[in-house]
Design a protein around this nucleic acid. Structure first.
Lengths: 350, 350
DNA sequence: TTGAAAGCGCTAACAT
DNA sequence: ATGTTAGCGCTTTCAA
């Protein structure tokens, strides 16, 4: 739309200085007399000079790295979906000379998260994608990022603070609301609803699904104020204990069993139910893990609320690359993923 | 810059040829012996060579131009919103060395559209954005684009065919459905609904809002099968005639008046109603033009279904630029704009 | 504080 | 058919 053929050479000539000097004022690199600086700035303005992006990018062989900080995971677990998306995106952004690095931490160990964070800071990346499983530590971390001028994006869940470039994930609160509606909406008032939670939640370690639970609770207290919400805490790593705990609570309940979990582990409950031959349960969970889908098919889970986790990660990485390379601002701060409701009858096409 | 330190020089050396030859096979520019070609291809594969985008873009000083073919317009008319979005985007994509050019045509003159189309083809742009007001001619046009290998995107409305890169606009059918629901939903069965249309529609010239009308009609026949749909045709350029026509139809109706228009011209109706002092009318239209908003405020229009037309154009231009420069495929084919419902009470914040 | 000059990796015109 | 070479516009030493 413009014949912007003005180059740095034109500017240098018109200002009576060399390219080098122009470049110095262009990037505020100092070592320029006030006089030259003003002159150059004036000429730039007059000529309407716009630096050529490609020449700049080519000449400054900068290393740009995006670090993605996510929980470690085994194949088939939730985070492997995100992991896949990140790897896919890595291939795409490689064209822009951007490297992507995944750093894992143990989502059950604060210490491991702390270590991962400091290693990330030390590596001085150009941008960070963070799945903030620990609230307070994550805040400390992003503050450090801000101090170092490193932009960051929240992935999968977010912390309320203002420094982040964006959030890519579900609208957590709404997803809890939706979950409650799928569980109970239009039905007779359930006497009890079991909310199965990871024991971690109990230990004061913050819970990334807290907001989802809030949405759920708000729905319930609004529409089913008389329903009793029973929290059950399990340790996902100890199957024996899980069964013990569930036997005591759900297993000993004679009535209809309404059960939800706010993370991707609903398969743990489904397995228990299947094994104990429990009937009359209504089980809702999150995320389209293979294991969850299996239980959906066999009818031990009635519905899953899912999202295209991999696409989400791809979008987040792309957005970050676009930002650090071209300086393109993000279109939206909240990039909410669509919430898909999966049942036995539509899950084959997901 | 990346682990990909393999340059065209490395390939040339390894293949025992010169950079020139490598470049030739890279771009299928011919003039290379089968033998060299194979060797180069093999080496590229082995070394995992990926050309440096920036160097390529810098060296090949190609002019890339996106042409946007939209109806001509006066200030305040619908298309000036699109026009603005395009101009905004032009500034953005200038960084990528992409130029944007707007070509206008008279949306009431097939001949002018034809002329515009052939001038576009002749200018051999890198990409085209098209607002297809004339169905058949647009089809001819996009076929010509395909023949010339020029990618194109539909803007605002689309034609069903498979060659386009994408569509940026409202979900037309749904918008008609929504319109009907806003007009009648939950109300007593209206005896009549007036659908005010542009006379053009009658003349066999195709109507870009046809799909919207279909959505509307489907809603009506499903929910209000007994309501009579009265089509009224006006010529937007002839105010005298408009009043004449409306006096004969709407003006002589004693009952409640339900009125819709499927394009942005509802202000024509509102003006008539205001001037005639007609009460008890329920008027729904599309698009947040200044004139429409005024009538919304004064209560002669009950609701508008709007969209951020400018953003839509920005997105479309950006997507096209991204495609022609970097070869990035479009994420979605159908980029449906959100449909916003505006009433007297929320239109100030739009 | 400044200028000169050597690239960055690729393209394309020219020579062979 | 192939090699050579001069850029593209900017960044970044290195001297001065």
């Amino acid at each position: 739309m413009e014949g912007n053929k003005v180059t740095i050479n034109d500017v240098a000539r018109a200002a009576g200085v060399s390219k080098g000097t122009v470049d110095r004022v262009l990037h505020n690199r100092g070592e320029v007399s006030q006089k030259s600086k003003e002159k150059v700035l004036k000429v730039i303005e007059e000529l309407g000079f716009k630096p050529n992006l490609y020449a700049s990018l080519l000449a400054s062989q900068k290393e740009r790295t995006i670090v993605c900080l996510i929980p470690e995971h085994l194949p088939g677990e939730f985070w492997s979906l995100t992991d896949k998306g990140i790897r896919d995106a890595a291939v795409l952004v490689a064209r822009y000379g951007v490297k992507v690095q995944i750093v894992n931490y143990d989502q059950y160990s604060l210490e491991s998260f702390r270590e991962a964070c400091s290693s990330v800071i030390e590596s001085k990346p150009s941008g960070v994608l963070l799945a903030p499983m620990f609230r307070d530590e994550s805040l400390t971390f992003v503050n450090a990022l801000v101090d170092n001028g490193i932009p960051y994006i929240f992935l999968d869940s977010k912390i309320e603070e203002s420094g982040s470039l964006a959030y890519f994930g579900m609208p957590m609160y709404q997803s809890g609301f939706l979950c409650a509606d799928i569980l109970c909406g239009g039905r007779e008032i359930p006497e009890k609803v079991y909310v199965v939670r990871i024991a971690r939640d109990k230990q004061g370690l913050s819970d990334p699904t807290a907001d989802r639970r809030n949405g759920f609770m708000d729905y319930m207290s609004r529409h089913y104020p008389d329903t009793q919400i029973v929290n059950v805490f399990i340790n996902p790593k100890d199957k024996g204990e899980i069964y013990e705990v569930l036997d005591r609570s759900i297993g000993s309940d004679a009535g209809n069993k309404f059960i939800v979990m706010f993370n991707s582990r609903i398969h743990l409950v489904a397995e228990f139910i299947a094994e104990r031959g429990i009937k009359d349960s209504r089980v809702i969970g999150f995320d389209a893990l293979q294991k969850n889908l299996e239980h959906l098919r066999s009818g031990y889970v009635q519905a899953l609320i899912a999202q295209h986790t991999d696409r989400q990660a791809v979008d987040a990485v792309n957005a970050m690359a676009d930002y650090i390379v071209f300086g393109n601002p993000l279109a939206k701060k909240d990039n909410f993923t669509q919430m898909d409701i999966l049942t036995k009858y539509n899950c084959e096409y997901y």
